[in-house]
Computed example of a mutant assay.
Amino acid sequence: MPAATVDPRLLRAFLAVAEELHFTRAATRLYVAQQALSRDIRRLEGELGAELFVRTTRQVSLTPDGARLLPYARRVLEAQSALLAAFGREGEADRPLLVDVNSPGLIGVRVLDRARELVPDIELMTRFESGLTGAAGEILAGRLDASFGRFAGLDPAVRARLEQQPVRYERMAIILPEGHRLAPLAEVPLPALAGETVYAGAGNPRTPEWTDLARRLFEDRGIDIAPPAPLAVGKDEFQRIMAKRGHPILAVTDFPPMPRTVLRPLVDPVPLSPVSLVWRKDTVHPGIDALRRAAAETGAAEGWLRRLPGAWLPAADAEVMETGPGRAAR
């Protein structure tokens, strides 16, 4: 029996393949990986209980059921566009797109810089805050358009109202005071942190997804999470407070340098921080398309979504990163 509702994203995938009659071209048009597009088509076929395409090594063609679906898909998507336009959600290309890139130097900055090259006539504005949980609330309230972070760490009710595209697995690292016993090491094995108290944003209402990732990583390893620190606003205040506390800081390898500290990658195992591009489901803006394309192209060129053998990643995060609409091939 066909599903009671059909996700418009699946219909968009179907329409792209139906018009291109080529999965690779359709995936490029949608800024998604071909594997993700094929998965969406299989899901739509499962929900409708019908085969929509005949696939051979040489060509793709519509089945009779696919040809029957085509006009319905076009009407549904046209109606959705009209609805969004009626409530001011379409035709917004003239307004700036506000993107939270978390911190200077992190992966969001690189994606945003490439997106600006792709759409030089679109104004993509940057803000530097910290944490996807805080940004997600702003996105849903309409005060922010997109951000980056650990999507699996958000509340399920919040995730249900957002879209995400996997961007990168970032290697995690530890920031140590210059005189720390582990500072001379080129890499810090996780077992060597046993007995340490590490700052991981505990108590920060904007970053509970990061603290949760730290708890999962430190569990059964004898590593404690430092108690909440005063909520710092700005890089200088954060560095001052961290220097005063003196705790090692959980970070990623691209974290901006801090005075009188060293940054060391973590190993044994190599822990990964999953990063997704996140936006509200009803957002219609060419800037979002540019961000998605920038993340997909740069990630594919640099292997951002390859996981090192034996790397550490929670199962919930692995599932999110494997099933996101923009998942690139490993």
Rank of each mutant, 00 (worst) to 15 (best):
R293T: 05
L250N: 01
A329R: 07
W304N: 01
L277W: 07
G303W: 06
R12Q: 14
A152W: 03
L11D: 04
A82I: 08
G326L: 03
E297N: 06
R9L: 15
T298G: 02
V278G: 00
A183P: 00
E322C: 04
L144R: 00
G108T: 10
Y199R: 05
V6L: 15
D224M: 12
E322T: 05
G326K: 02
D282H: 10
A73T: 14
T253M: 09
A243K: 09
R89Y: 10
H22C: 14
G131A: 10
L21Q: 15
R150L: 14
A135V: 09
V17K: 01
R240G: 03
R58D: 13
G46F: 05
L144E: 10
E129A: 11
L62T: 04
P96M: 14
T126P: 00
G234H: 07
W210A: 11
T56G: 14
P8K: 09
V262F: 10
R116F: 07
T56Q: 09
A232R: 06
G234S: 14
L10P: 00
P189C: 12
H285L: 12
K244G: 06
R216F: 06
H180S: 08
R216M: 14
G91H: 08
L30Y: 03
Q80E: 15
V17D: 01
A311Y: 07
E163G: 02
V6F: 07
I225N: 02
A192I: 09
Q34S: 11
R327K: 11
K235V: 14
I249K: 01
V54P: 00
A16T: 06
E129Y: 08
V320F: 03
D7E: 14
L112S: 08
D100P: 02
P259S: 07
R206W: 08
A85C: 04
L44M: 13
L132F: 09
R181T: 13
F238W: 11
T211M: 06
L193E: 02
A315S: 08
M172G: 01
A328M: 15
L37E: 05
R161P: 02
A294R: 03
S147I: 07
A192V: 04
A202F: 04
E219G: 06
G88I: 12
T298F: 01
G203S: 05
E45M: 12
R89Q: 13
Q239V: 12
L193M: 14
A50E: 15
S130T: 10
S147F: 02
A173I: 06
L11M: 12
A3V: 04
R29D: 09
A160L: 11
G234T: 03
V198T: 07
P227Y: 08
A251N: 07
R55W: 02
L84N: 06
A86R: 11
E319S: 08
V284K: 01
A315G: 00
H22Q: 14
E138A: 14
P166Q: 07
A318G: 09
D155W: 04
E20A: 15
T298K: 03
L69Q: 05
E129S: 11
A311Q: 09
T5L: 15
A4C: 03
L84P: 01
A229M: 15
T261K: 05
K244Y: 09
D268K: 10
A318W: 01
L118Q: 10
A173V: 08
R29M: 11
S276D: 13
M258G: 01
